[in-house]
């Protein structure tokens, strides 16, 4: 039983990682990874929405008619996203300001809707929780890794703390849109290479 739950959890971390394997949820992955703080906050916010909507949907799945499945899911997700948005604005105004538009856009993050469709609507609540935690963590660690690389190379700091010292000439391109695309491309390529070696 526990072992099975662990398999559900582990799935999202690597084998079916939402970003590097399934390649979904790309917009926030590129947009908010210019600093580690933003990346981490976005990962946590997305995980929270994923977890709460998976719990609700897996619990009430038998009451939702099949034809209105998707609209119902989107409604539930949008409700949790609004909650998250107001919560951050009230208690973490700085984070809310720097993520701005990308908090509401969690509504249309394919990762969230995709997991409801593929997992929560077919499995019991405890397995849905394991899945949501795994996928959320899988999403978060890639965001943090990517933002660490971009912040370090682009501004010479991590979490806003200077790491590389004054001799380092920051590569501003890394914190710009172009740097986001290129570093994610290289990261996915690197993961492909590691997977290939593993096989």
């Amino acid at each position: 039983m526990l072992k099975k739950l662990f398999v559900d959890f582990k799935n999202g971390l690597w084998r079916e990682n939402p970003i590097i394997v399934l390649v979904i949820g790309m917009c926030p992955t590129l947009a908010v990874t210019n600093t580690v703080e933003n990346g981490l906050a976005m990962g946590i916010a997305t995980s929270f929405v994923l977890l709460s909507s998976e719990i609700v949907i897996s619990t009430f799945k038998n009451y939702i008619p099949n034809n209105v499945r998707i609209p119902s899911f989107i409604l539930i997700i949008a409700t949790f996203v609004t909650f998250t948005d107001y919560f951050l604005k009230a208690f973490f105004p700085d984070i809310a300001a720097s993520l701005s538009l990308f908090i509401p856009l969690i509504v249309v993050n394919c990762l969230i809707l995709g997991r409801q469709e593929a997992f929560a609507s077919k499995n019991p609540t405890h397995r849905a929780i394991a899945d949501a935690l795994g996928m959320g963590l899988g999403f978060t660690w890639v965001l943090v890794l990517l933002s660490a690389v971009r912040e370090l190379l682009g501004m010479g700091s991590i979490f806003g703390i200077e790491i590389l010292g004054s001799w380092y000439q920051p590569m501003v391109i890394m914190v710009l849109p172009a740097g986001a695309f290129i570093s994610l491309g290289i990261l996915v390529g690197l993961m492909n290479y590691l997977k290939r070696r593993g096989n």
């Binding site: 710009l176 695309f181 290129i182 290939r196």
Partner: peptide, 21 residues
């Protein structure tokens, strides 16, 4: 081989983003 598909598309998008700058 390892860059085929998504990675090379992202890198291309990066170059396009630079051009649009």
């Amino acid at each position: 081989e390892v860059l085929k598909g998504v990675p090379i598309t992202l890198i291309l998008a990066g170059l396009m983003a630079m051009a649009f700058m």
